[in-house]
Design a protein around this nucleic acid. Structure first.
Lengths: 110, 110
DNA sequence: TTTATTAATCGTATATTTGCGATGAACAAT
DNA sequence: ATTGTTCATCGCAAATATACGATTAATAAA
């Protein structure tokens, strides 16, 4: 598969936004983020009661959220405490805001 | 592949948000949406100058955005005019806002 | 030292996404 | 009727995502 779009020069903002959106693109990960938003913090195990998924699957979702920068984990064996990565969370919030606020209604159409 | 999470009872809001996020999860689609936001409307062909992708690929991305409800196309053969689906666009905006506004900072952590 | 607890990672299977060229459909212009 | 324009769809290949069980790693408790 040729991947021309991956070498194309998308702006960093566009890449970041797509990355954040991808992290939010699965219901389980939204549940996790909502849970963290409400609870402030939680352990991986707590999520086993919230989601109908295997431990390994939840761990994978957490990894993706971590790689997207939306959460961070504090290792405290044998537990790991996760919470929202506040700085990046605000960054994501701002980038989504920017996308949606563009006033396309300047010129009426359709 | 077992897909337990797909039969699980996620809330409609969660499903909708994940769907919108998935639509936004590719840089090309973000470019398209930004273009539509600024231009109000455009034809498929216009995007060929904006994106380094084949016509068929762009058409596919447009289809996904349409299926996610974020854009709509007015067929006017041989051209098709695309624009933001304002109602759903606002709905998406609101749902992202809701996600991010949850004040997880109530309890300080990490 | 052995056992229990917690969570990450590995290996594997399947589904979905992304991309392209080729083709087809709809209409305008000739 | 033929040709040109525009765009969607089909068929394929490759990459990525999703899910699970099994295993491993790190530590506490016994």
């Amino acid at each position: 598969m040729k991947r021309s779009s991956q070498t194309f020069d998308y702006s960093q903002e566009t890449i970041d936004l797509a990355k954040f959106a991808k992290a939010l693109s699965h219901p389980a990960r939204i549940i996790i983020l909502k849970h963290l938003s409400n609870q402030s913090c939680c352990f991986t195990g707590d999520l086993l009661e919230v989601l109908p998924l295997a431990q390994s699957t939840i761990s994978q979702h957490l990894k993706e959220l971590k790689e997207a920068g939306l959460i961070e984990g504090e290792v405290n064996p044998p537990k790991v405490k996760y919470c929202i990565h506040q700085e990046n969370w605000k960054k994501a919030q701002k980038e989504f805001q920017t996308l949606f606020k563009e006033d396309f209604r300047k010129i009426k159409c359709c």
